[in-house]
Design a protein around this nucleic acid. Structure first.
Lengths: 362, 362
DNA sequence: GTGAAAGCGCTAACAG
DNA sequence: CTGTTAGCGCTTTCAC
């Protein structure tokens, strides 16, 4: 691998000049410019990214922390995030934490600020303390899918209004005429899907539809989890005409359960999910769901991160930027702490897994 | 971020000593060692990976080239590969080429040898010339899922015997008593799935079962592609009792098609795929398929890459290592060019999508 | 316009 | 045992 110096030697100039030519900086004589360019291509010179980053005082990558890239939701996000990162001149390192905060900490310790200029966090079960520490060390952190725009966290984030998503799902079922609806929440009670559950529940209440605790199941956020929860739900509550799942995977599982119990979807049972992962379009019947702007979120997250990085490099002593409504500017720290972007609203994707309830259902 | 020098200052030693302490190198007095360690934790020192890599003459990452991480097969592989990479002290950069050789080239140009020490290539539609060039520049390249152990490529690779996989799928169908079998190939004719098709076809021929061209469809390697191909197949050949798909996604699509055409799987139609992606276990009915050792392949690929990297660093002038059978050692170049590892054999996962054909089928 | 020089943070000889 | 000295390959003032 040819170095700058070798190129310089061959062109009869100094490495500074070659650097200037390559970076289109200052005024270099046209003649030398040509000589340099010739040498560059003759030697097949390519800049050494590691060396460049070190000299520039930056880091060449962004880190994406996920619990496991194998979760069907993440690859779509990762794809969009990587594209966006490339646009800002970064490569993307994928960090699978396997839901283990220790692993997450080890990653942050090692690469934040040294190999990665900033950190994107998908729901990876990280210790917030570790994230604060990372930030204090100078490596910006962005939470990629915050579920409560109404309650900004102490970290910059991109928020998706999942409460609205839950409400939209509920409204869809209500509009079809359902009144006996079960729900499957793909997290612990009060866990990550709480906002979705709240939105759903409130929409039902507003419509005067009962939704007793006994028709709610908390499940693992997977097809299998949804399957089990749905079986339990339908066994104890055969009168249900619809099931809401807080995520697409459990919704898919619920459809399987229905099939195994001899119920036809959507004639005997309607099923609706949230997210609109690719699989939702490919299932049989196609899953009705509330689409969340995944790609937009990824782009906004990377963009926010980029801005934070720029600010950090400029010394954090300058302007204010976007911040959460209702907050006073109490110094850069506080402003950073509540910086939030909100994606566009979730939208209903009515497909084949929902329909009007059959009047004849027992 | 504290630097080595700051730590040294505080401990009253020189940065070299701190480095020695941290890297457990040479003999450092216990007293100074303690002082250094104290300073390290007082300052919260963490080594700067970029600087370290530059000084050591290595690169801190491995690059994984995939066409799109959103392809359901890749995340499982990427997860295993990342784990393995961590073990060898590397972080993993994901490079989505979007099937575009230009994009792939741009990645290779930029990071191979400068930010990434080596390159893992999943079927990413890359230009082989670019890969050779990358290798010549000193960044080892490993093909991760070579489909023909019998025909080693000119690049180090991990091969999976997909021909055997095709044969196993065929044998499964034959054992069940099927004789009228259609096949869906998830690539172009003679394309990437050719070995799977060959293995399948030969097994049928060996058993004396006819498999005319008219019962073969080439399709896009996706659920949708499989769906369309299966519709076409079943429309023109209603007598078929089974369908073989060269990949799980098209197999899943074939199941959907059957459902839409009023055929029950497996009673009216058996479907078998290849790979055993997670989804295969979660489909209804669960897909019978031939499992391929994805994780093992990932680990072997990273391991092979690690060895190549080590060799490249030692100067490529030493030992010979594993190489394809029947090749003479004609210098390091030639040896490298034909280095291949073969994973353990694919195995049948007989699940619910296959059964004996109904005697009564028209 | 171009070169000389310092330095990014760390490692790796080699002296002492 | 510890310090000194050179870099790794590149960028970036600042003179000439």
């Amino acid at each position: 691998m040819a170095t700058l110096n070798e190129v310089a030697l061959r062109a009869g100039v100094t490495s500074a000049t070659v650097s200037n030519v390559l970076r289109q900086r200052g005024r270099v004589g046209e003649a030398t410019r040509q000589r340099v360019l010739a040498a560059v291509s003759a030697l097949g010179y390519r800049p050494h990214l590691t060396a460049r980053a070190l000299a520039e005082g930056r880091a060449p990558t962004l880190a994406l922390m996920v619990s496991s890239i194998a979760n069907p939701f993440y690859p779509e996000f990762a794809l969009a995030a990587e594209r966006a990162a490339r646009r800002s001149g970064h490569f993307m390192i994928v960090c699978n934490t396997n839901e283990d905060p220790e692993v997450g900490r080890a990653y942050l310790e090692q690469i934040a600020g040294t190999l990665s200029e900033g950190v994107l966090v998908m729901n990876a079960n990280l210790d917030f303390e570790d994230l604060y520490k990372t930030e204090r060390r100078g490596a910006p952190v962005v939470l990629c899918m915050w579920e409560r725009p109404d309650q900004p966290p102490d970290l910059p984030c991109v928020a998706v209004d999942f409460r609205a998503a839950g409400a939209i799902a509920a409204q869809h079922l209500l509009d079809l005429g359902h009144t006996r609806i079960g729900s499957i929440i793909g997290s612990k009670r009060g866990g990550i899907h709480a906002a979705r559950q709240d939105g759903f529940r409130e929409a039902l209440r507003a419509a005067g539809v009962r939704h007793p605790q006994s028709t709610v199941r908390f499940a693992h956020d997977s097809i299998r989890g949804g399957y089990q929860a749905a079986c339990s739900l339908l066994e104890t509550h055969p009168e249900l005409t619809a099931i809401f799942a807080s995520n697409d995977l459990p919704a898919l599982g619920a459809m399987h359960a229905a099939a195994d119990l001899g119920l036809r979807v959507p004639q005997d049972l309607s099923v609706v999910g949230i997210t609109d992962i690719e699989l939702a379009r490919e299932s049989r019947p196609a899953l009705s769901t509330v689409a969340v702007p995944t790609c937009q979120a990824a782009e906004m997250a990377v963009d926010l991160l980029r801005q934070l990085i720029e600010r950090a490099q400029r010394g954090a002593a300058t302007d204010v930027g976007v911040r959460a409504a209702g907050m006073e500017a109490t110094g850069a720290e506080a402003v950073l702490a509540t910086m939030m972007r909100v994606t566009s609203a979730p939208i209903l994707m009515a497909r084949a897994s929902t329909a009007e309830p059959r009047a004849s259902k027992p």
